[in-house]
Design a protein around this nucleic acid. Structure first.
Lengths: 193, 193
DNA sequence: GTCTATACCGTGATAGAC
DNA sequence: GTCTATCACGGTATAGAC
């Protein structure tokens, strides 16, 4: 018991910046959160942040990279599977779980789309979303069924964000959203050859 | 033909500020749009804007009030109707149309949720969304069916925003989204007594 | 290698002159 | 009704203390 005082000694500063930043970004929005505020919470100066990260954008990029690897893996896995209904169900299941274990980040992206769109992570996220839609939909299906696939994805988001504030048990709500989403892709899937 | 030159003479300045502001807010996001930029587009100074509006927030509030009256009317109308399936369908139909005729505003609210949430219009919008959900759902229905009602609303949003960039004819896409949304509330409705 | 002090320019906002 | 001047705060940058 020699070192390590009020706010932990060292080495973990970078990690602590990421944690605090994500928390505040998700709570108050990206632009409304100032670097000063992040620095004050950690009891350092603004300039200290610039030792660990080149810019404000860099902070959120690093968080994004760390927390969305599961989605990347999921897409990689799914693209090597046969395009069966069961594969699609599994994609939704895993996507729902991935979101649940990174709520803050997904809430941030949901509520700061205008910001994210101009950031470099915007392009990345857009590509992944398209990849997911591509995995779920059948190109020759009627337009309504293609909408169903996208709607399924949005339902999972809605289930996490909007519903969480209204109903009781989040986990139960997540399951319900997953059920509805699955239902949608089942309908869309069955109408194809 | 005496007055009215390069940029229209007068009296409509307030209106022109609203138009330009909404356009830029929807395009680049609320925070990324500076008052200087708005002023420059109109060929006046920043301070001139402050004659017409107390704050930046006041600008978007005024636009919001002007453009969301249809939703307010819709809710008022629906609350006096019998809670039948046909009423619910009509709510979705009109909501979809209302969004179509105010795309910029809805896109702004969709992509700047974090900002809107802290603004006074956030509370108003939240109340209206809840009112709409209340009109669509049946309190005693299973959780999954309640999710379906919310999902229906989100599907309309998705149909307007996300899909618009991907597919071809926006009007056709809107119709498809409306179809899927209607389908969802039909399912939810039939499972109640 | 980790941080502080300090300064730069752009932002929303205000007061007061024309 | 519109402008100039001025303000505090935002992200960013660098020099240098430990």
């Amino acid at each position: 018991m020699s070192s390590s005082s009020p706010q932990q000694r060292r080495g973990n500063t970078r990690q602590r910046i990421q944690d605090v930043a994500l928390e505040l970004f998700a709570e108050q929005g990206y632009e409304k959160t100032s670097l000063r505020e992040i620095a004050e919470r950690l009891d350092v100066t603004k300039a200290a942040l610039y030792y660990h990260f080149k810019t404000k954008e860099d902070i959120i990029i690093s968080v994004f990279d760390d927390l969305t690897r599961p989605i990347d893996d999921l897409i990689g896995w799914a693209e090597e599977q046969p395009r069966t209904l069961e594969t699609k169900r599994e994609v939704l299941r895993r996507y729902s779980e991935a979101m649940a274990s990174g709520v803050s980040l997904y809430r941030f992206m949901q509520e700061n789309q205008a910001t994210v769109r101009e950031l470099s992570i915007g392009e990345t996220m857009k590509k992944r979303l398209f990849a997911l839609v591509e995995l779920l939909r059948s190109a020759d299906a009627p337009l309504a069924d293609q909408v169903r696939c996208i709607s399924a994805l949005f339902t999972l988001h809605a289930g996490m964000m909007f519903l969480q504030h209204v109903e009781g048990d989040p986990e139960e709500t997540r399951k319900a959203a997953l059920e509805v989403a699955t239902d949608l892709i089942v309908q869309a899937h069955h109408r194809q050859p």
